[in-house]
Amino acid sequence: MKNLSAFLFSILDRFMRFVELPTVYLQKKIGVQRMGYLFVAPNMVLFSLFVFLPVGLAIAYAFTGGTNMLIWDRPFVGLENFSRLLNCGSYMNPASCEFDLFWTAVHNTWWYTLLNATGTLVMALITAVVLNRLTKGKALFRSIFFYPVLLSPVVVGLIWKWFLARDGLLNALVLDLGGERTIFLLEVWWSRFWVVYVSIWFHMGFFTLIILAGLQAIPRDIYEAAKVDGTSEWRQFWRITLPLLTPNLLVVAVLLLIRSVQVFDEAWVLTDGGGPGTANTFIVQFIYQTAFSSEVRLYGLASAASVLMGLALLALTLIQVWLAKKAEY
């Protein structure tokens, strides 16, 4: 085994000597310090292709129309995509809009974001505080609560779809308790509830971990002082923990908002593409459908929606950066 790995390594090393040759030449040409450019180059090429260029393209496409994919085949339409997206009788009523699906998605995303962010924050905070109290078994429970984070959206969607199915365990329990068998994911309000519930279930562990790190950063002696004063634990939480944690929580909250706005994967799998009807259709799904899964691929319109969402996220990000800076002091 050891011999084998040594052998493999020697082959790899010989190969790397080969790769090395041109870099040695380059190093002589441009000098040692400028070799930094060579080392960042592959990364920068990929970033340019798949991040920076798309950002530029998103903006460019947002101002073009038609269904051609190549930008030079697309007519410039100015702000038309935006104006059509924003063309509404009343923003409160998606049905009055030219693109009612977009506004339905905006409304759905808005409510989802609000509920999911609040729910996750509260649950994660409670869990983190409870975990932080533990003297034993902390690592174990931390792992348990974190585990769902590592699952894939498809897996999570399917696990819950099965759990909530007509023949699922939940219905069996409900029936057992004398309730009525319900097809949860086909009822508008139930499905919305479960989408939020599953999201919280899915992502809570991640935020718990971050809040927990914040809790552990609070110096122990502050609590010791309070204990000497005979402050009750409940009071300690409200008077010490929460105020000291607030900067952290704000950052987490904004992060949560940013993530929530992008809801798509697990909800999409869980609700079979945003159903029932459009009850769980969110903005990202709208963009995806507009660009990829509708008969006519409206890249311009999808890009315009992306740009709008990007701007919202940018605003949130700026708030987050600002809060994070403040939290450092």
Binding site: M44, F47, V51, L53, Y288, A291, S306, M309, L313, T317
Partner: peptide, 24 residues
């Protein structure tokens, strides 16, 4: 500048650029 540029992409989710990224 390069470092900041790379860090800034941390804030840029795929969902915002998926359409043009696919075109690329």
């Amino acid at each position: 500048a390069i470092f900041m540029l790379i860090l800034s992409t941390l804030m840029l989710p795929l969902s915002v650029i998926m359409v043009p990224a696919f075109i690329v």
